[in-house]
Design a protein around this nucleic acid. Structure first.
Lengths: 191, 191
DNA sequence: GTCTATACGAAGATAGAC
DNA sequence: GTCTATCTTCGTATAGAC
């Protein structure tokens, strides 16, 4: 299959970004982690490291969107629960050693190119979540702001749990977002 | 004053961490940014880069605690408003180019030493905020979880605003945290 | 406390053979 | 598509003079 090696490298880069950040995501590390052949690096990524990392950011974006599949029409509670479940699984599968590749790039790059990929991914997530939340019963004017709060608090919670090497920060945040959602849903019914 | 050069380097490192992450915070960059003398690097930091970065993380921690001064006994609303004001000022003074040094280290280090400094700083922030919120009228059992939500959402919001090069994500999150607080305060009065 | 010089390794990138 | 060799730059770190 054409592109198999390339895809492997992108997946490997995504994992490395999430775990140890932009700097540690060197070609050598990606090759070591994937077993990909050294000689074909610039064949697959003529644009060099930036191209690989850009692809990895996009890939991380798609992974999350894919993990939101099947939620169309589901209650907003289920959307929020799923979003936190995705990030919880990142933490548990890595013993709180891994996080979000997009965030890692955002805070460590000085390339406008790369940053624009992160921008696009976060916006995409926000739009997708806002749609799902609206479909799930959240008032239209509350959906977009709440989607942003959802992403921000989950991203922050993942970082705090990594720092604490414990799920406690994450769970504290997750449960409070659930409460906040119930308030918004009641407000919608009342209004 | 003894330690003036050292303090300058720590401050410079903190700023560099917040803006471009752990990797970009090299000795050369710190020296270039501070004008500190090259020859005395290992005189001030015999432990090398890890020692400098550890000091910078601690410094970032202290800066925020200092910025929370004068809030003892203030209403919880004021505490939340101040916390977001601190981070808003980081974003506005850097045109959304800078963020949190502690977060940057957390997601990019593989040193247990360094991570433990980040752990300590986040815990300290949480305890300090929980105390202030309790003093400000938040029910005791709500203070610690809400302090965690406050930190997580602010940290996440700063990252999202950097990615978006706009204050909009940050403000969306900040205003919703204010609403959430009001709910908790009402719940405390009712309970 | 600060200087210069230097060693060492890692990373990104390119060229040319197979 | 993949290999090896090589180049350059950069970052960390040490030694020893001033």
């Amino acid at each position: 299959m054409a592109g198999e090696v390339r895809d492997n490298m992108v997946r490997g880069a995504t994992a490395l970004l999430a775990r140890r950040g932009l700097h540690a995501t060197s070609f050598s590390e990606v090759l070591a982690a994937t077993g990909a052949p050294r000689g074909s690096l610039y064949h697959h990524f003529p644009g060099g490291k930036d191209q690989l990392v850009s692809a990895a950011v996009d890939h991380a974006g798609s992974l999350l969107v894919a993990a939101l599949e099947g939620l169309a029409g589901a209650p907003a509670e289920a959307v929020v629960a799923r979003f936190f479940a995705i990030w919880r699984s990142v933490l548990t599968h890595s013993q709180c050693g891994s996080g979000c590749a997009v965030l890692a790039v955002t805070v460590a790059t000085d390339s406008a190119e790369l940053l624009s990929h992160a921008t696009a991914v976060f916006r995409h997530w926000r739009e997708r979540l806002a749609d799902l939340l609206r479909q799930g019963g959240l008032p239209a004017d509350a959906a977009r702001p709440f989607a942003m709060l959802l992403i921000a608090s989950a991203e922050g919670a993942v970082v705090l749990s990594r720092a604490d090497q414990s799920l406690e920060p994450f769970e504290a945040v997750a449960s409070q977002l659930g409460e906040q959602l119930r308030v918004l849903l009641q407000g919608g019914q009342a209004g």
